[in-house]
Design a protein around this nucleic acid. Structure first.
Length: 566
DNA sequence: TACCCCAGCGCG
DNA sequence: AAAGCGCGCTGGGGTA
């Protein structure tokens, strides 16, 4: 059974539907909810908790708008349909391009997708709007659900695409649950780490002692007593005045220089970054009650990866991971999918030789195949293949990979060529890349014009290749994101089944980082959690690639601190 | 004051 | 090692 939730003036409207999206037949006396019902807001959680016993699929416009209030009332739900997230997938998927949904004008269900994409350069969707689209208060979730079901029915691979929709929605539940539970964070540990690395917390507006000390050395070496090291302009001028030839103040460029100012300057940059990004101010702002609660944004990246907003949750530097510690009597189980993206490529291409190389450590396997000499080379070559390296070590080594594993490399090359032509590519489960925007097509048009200048042609070629690198990576990164969603969704169910009680009394997910998860669990269950993590990974591999023998090994660490995991 | 963009760097 | 994917965040420096 589906139960659709929507807001009405006097509360929440609940519409029970069959799994096909039809009204519950009058003759069906077994349905737990048989008629459209209005429930006051204050009574919603209890009503949902009660109905949850019959395992319905809750349907709502936006999980992040509905679920936190339920969680706050102690209500965890098993399944949902997040209409906005699923709409975004169906709107763009090549598989549903002919559906009514894909052909309908842009409306309220597109807002999430459009706004999520505006900061990036992928403005294809947003180009369609002249202005911010107006929110249609009457956007009917029942009608939208039916539109989505009809769209899915037109998909040639409706099983895969349906799996993606379910996984995306499960991800939305997980995101809300992780925020609710929070990542256990020790303010004291964090403060200790900062004090050790930067010196004691300074008064407002002052630099910590250790920063001040290295800065003094930089100023002395550069003979620039007034230098503002945080201003790239100022710093660049000072470096040049000292006779150094530099084009920027990037660390990797500075590292190549021989000068007394460089070591303290690099130290300063490292420390100053920590202070600005994850210093005391961050601690005051983001840690509440011993928990870090970032705002996860499922589907926030075009490829289907999650984004976060606020707190920089996906960029927690390794330096401060020591502050992530479990509650007393609990453990952190940190699990990382080893070499996920190359293994995803193995599955996408069904390359048996690469699958064989991936029996153990994939990079060692590539070395053993004779393609390259060292593990480091194997890694660089693999990354080069997936990102589209054209020069450097990656560009040099990638052709050797193509020789040893032609089937796998052909898949990313084909995706790149498609992108260069402005075509759409899709992930394993059917998430499609956005089309290139109007500016891109305009540049191609100018470059192909008979009267095109050399510069026009170069610009067109450059942009075409750039879009090709995007589509090349899209199929791998996007399919990896799907694998990770399936992994987490499966793990979520397994963890729930391990114990009784509220969400945070059982083993539960507290962090997710593209190919890595952290579970917070009572100590006596930690070993079993580790097993479930591995089993869920194997399930995810089968969900995406069926009986294709691709291994997805997971490294698991049971630790007292996130910093202790590898 | 409010916003915008850039440079730089953290993560995968 | 420094070119090749996807992000978010900060402080500087500019404009309105």
């Amino acid at each position: 059974m589906h139960v659709v939730l929507s807001s009405v003036p006097d509360g929440v409207l609940l519409t029970p539907l069959t799994d096909d999206g039809d009204a519950i037949p009058a003759a069906d006396a077994t349905a737990p909810l048989r008629t459209v019902t209005t429930v006051p807001r204050a009574a919603l959680s209890a009503f949902v908790a009660n109905l949850e016993e019959s395992h319905p699929r809750w349907v709502w416009d936006d999980t992040s708008a509905w679920y936190p209030a339920l969680l706050a009332d102690g209500v965890r739900v098993e399944r949902c349909v997040d209409l906005r997230l699923n709409h975004a997938i169906l709107r763009l998927s090549s598989q549903t391009a002919g559906s009514s949904l894909a052909r309908s004008p842009y409306g309220p269900w597109d807002i999430a997708a459009a706004t999520a994409q505006t900061p990036a350069s992928h403005t294809a969707l947003f180009d369609i709007f002249d202005d911010e689209p107006e929110v249609d208060a009457a956007a009917d979730p029942v009608a939208e659900l039916r539109l989505q079901k009809a769209a899915l029915a037109t998909a040639p691979e409706s099983g895969s695409l349906g799996l993606l929709l379910a996984a995306e929605s499960a991800g939305a539940l997980i995101a809300a649950e992780m925020r609710f539970a929070g990542l256990p964070w020790s303010v004291d540990r964090h403060n200790d780490l900062l004090t050790e690395l930067l010196g004691p917390r300074p008064r407002a507006g002052e630099r910590p002692a250790k920063l001040e000390a290295v800065l003094a050395r930089v100023r002395e070496e550069l003979e620039a007593p007034e230098l503002n090291p945080d201003s790239p302009n100022d710093l660049l001028r000072a470096l040049r005045r000292a006779g150094l030839i530099v084009s920027s103040t990037r660390s990797w460029e500075l590292k190549k220089l021989e000068h007394g100012s460089i070591p303290p300057l690099l130290e300063y940059k490292k420390m100053s970054r920590l202070l600005a990004a994850n210093g005391w101010h961050w601690l005051d702002t983001w840690i509440d009650d011993g928990r870090f609660r970032p705002d996860y944004v499922p589907g926030g990246v075009v490829t289907g990866r999650w984004a976060t907003s606020g707190g920089g949750a996906l960029q927690l530097p390794k330096q401060i991971r020591g502050a992530v510690v479990p509650d007393p009597g609990w453990k952190l189980i940190v699990a990382d999918a080893a070499q996920l993206e190359p293994r995803i490529l193995t599955g996408l291409s069904a390359d048996k030789r690469m699958a064989e190389a991936g029996r153990g450590d994939l990079y060692e396997g590539i070395v053993a195949s004779g393609a390259v000499a060292t593990r480091a080379e194997a890694k660089v070559a693999m990354l080069g293949a997936m990102y589209g390296a054209t020069s450097g070590d990656g560009g040099r080594l990638m052709p050797r990979l193509a020789k040893a594993f032609p089937q796998a490399i052909a898949v990313v090359e084909a995706a790149a060529r498609a992108g260069e032509r402005g075509e759409i590519v899709s992930t394993r489960l059917g998430r499609s890349s956005p089309p290139p925007g109007g500016l891109w097509w305009a540049a191609q048009g100018e470059g192909n014009d008979v009267a095109a200048s050399e510069a026009d042609q170069q610009r067109a070629r450059g942009q075409a290749r750039s879009w090709g690198r995007f589509t090349r990576n899209f199929i791998v990164q996007g399919s990896a994101a799907e694998w990770a969603l399936c992994w987490m969704a499966g793990l979520r169910n397994r963890l729930w089944a391990m114990a009784d009680g509220d969400l945070t009394e059982r083993p539960h997910l507290v962090f997710f980082l593209h190919d890595e998860v952290v579970v917070h669990a009572p100590e006596h269950l930690a070993d079993r959690v580790a097993e479930e993590v591995r089993a869920a990974a194997a399930d995810a591999g089968r969900l995406l690639f069926g009986r294709m023998p691709v291994d997805f090994p997971v490294t698991v660490a049971i630790v007292e601190s996130y910093a202790d995991a590898k």
